[in-house]
Design a protein around this nucleic acid. Sequence first.
DNA 1: CAATAATTTATAATGATTATAAAATTATAA
DNA 2: TTATAATTTTATAATCATTATAAATTATTG
Lengths: 142, 142
Amino acid sequence: MNRTGMTDAAELLREHGIKPSHQRVLVLSYLMTHPEHPAADAIYRSLLPEMASLSKMTVYNTLEILRKAGLVRIVRIGDPEARYDVMTDDHGHFKCEICGGLSDFAVDMRPLVSDGLAGYEIRERNVYFKGICPGCLENKTE
Amino acid sequence: MNRTGMTDAAELLREHGIKPSHQRVLVLSYLMTHPEHPAADAIYRSLLPEMASLSKMTVYNTLEILRKAGLVRIVRIGDPEARYDVMTDDHGHFKCEICGGLSDFAVDMRPLVSDGLAGYEIRERNVYFKGICPGCLENKTE
DNA sequence: CAATAATTTATAATGATTATAAAATTATAA
DNA sequence: TTATAATTTTATAATCATTATAAATTATTG
Ligand SMILES: [Mn+2]
Ligand SMILES: [Mn+2]
Ligand SMILES: [Zn+2]
Ligand SMILES: [Zn+2]
């Protein structure tokens, strides 16, 4: 932890044996401060003003390194782009079919496995809903 | 229903206002008899011996028509290919990370929505797990 | 300072899907 | 039936997120 009480990106990387290069810190920090589950291209475009030399390939590389380290998870719902999430605890995702927004919601995964999965080794549980978000519902009725 | 008590593909298409062309019946029948959630290319390759003139584009077109009619759902887990499922009731999907196999399991979606989704219009609920299937687990210990 | 390793970058390739339009089939009208 | 229009299928090209590859840069070690 740093003096703010928050684990910063550089330290988090070090803790996971990843060398905290400038670009890696930028990518991870971006994810830590942007809970909207940005896609690789959105991350790239957002960081470009801060670092003009940044390559999109570095963003992809870094995201893959972070994923392997368990620091981010990929969320794929509907569209062809993968979106990224600083992995914390298990949670569900709601994807708005109109604005494309992706929001989190709490989910208790335990009661999901009724039976029928005896003999399977479960490594990852995912829940996602699709529909219309409150904002877009409001725009519709206007 | 036909004399076997089973709704066949052609009739199912008619019931949904879709003209039961030879290729459409082939694609839907294939899905109805192959619960392994085949991808578009797998459907195409499997049907080619039966109908040498079949175009992959027709498979894609047909799958999209079926999806719009609610006759099939798309299952996307992990890999880039979409896989198709003759939609019946809600169920979860288990994807084996080793063999890529996709199997169904029963899931009660109702208790999922604890709260936090008030004001959202939910149109689709999805649950999928990833891990290792019994067959692949056995091969590992051998 | 070399020499070596790690990282980033530029560029090209991949591959599933989509777009487009021509060809073939089917339905409708004359 | 024949012409005409609508539908469906097919061939072909385009798209686009991601991956592969290798050169260039940067960091590390002796
Ligand atoms: Mn999330
Ligand atoms: Mn299924
Ligand atoms: Zn919305
Ligand atoms: Zn398996």
